[in-house]
Amino acid sequence: MSNEPPTPREQTHETTGLLERIFAEQRAPLTRYAARLLGDADRARDVVQDAFVKLLAQPRGAVDDHMVEWLFTVCRNGALDILRKEQRMRRFAEGELERAPAADTRPGRTLEAAETHASVLKLIDRLPPNQQEVVRLKFQNGFSYKEIAGITSLSVTNVGFLIHTAVTRLRREFAAERP
């Protein structure tokens, strides 16, 4: 989390209005994103608060043109830091890891009568996590391939491949759902 205090600088952001707007608009999407990484809304809120605190510490103009993308990146890094720290603390968590593949089951059978949205979300939840993340960043948060590449430290090609793979699979599964 924020072990680095914000460094005092001579100048802070010129655009208080912009900051407030970004805060109001992006806090919820950022928290949702971080909560999904962490599986926990509390820590997600912490991470998001940290990201905003860090944003304030940025020199003017450093991130203005890609502020939202920057916030997602910082949240992601914060979340991954927390997950890494936890590894040391959760001695009895071993085994939980192996449970992860359980989500991979036969879709379709149980979805017949579900609402379309719920069933689509279920199918998304069955994607591998890295595909889920980029799919959400793309179709939920509206980032471009390039921005996603920035947030996730993947190459643009890689992002394109992940999204393509996910969309292709979902397309096939949607078709299978409709008799």
Binding site: D40, D81, R84, E96, R99, A103, T105
Partner: peptide, 17 residues
């Protein structure tokens, strides 16, 4: 580190599916 998201919750969600 990334393995350690909360599978407790994840596993449950998966099962519910």
């Amino acid at each position: 580190a990334m393995k350690l998201s909360r599978f407790g919750v994840a596993a449950n969600a998966g099962k519910d599916d």
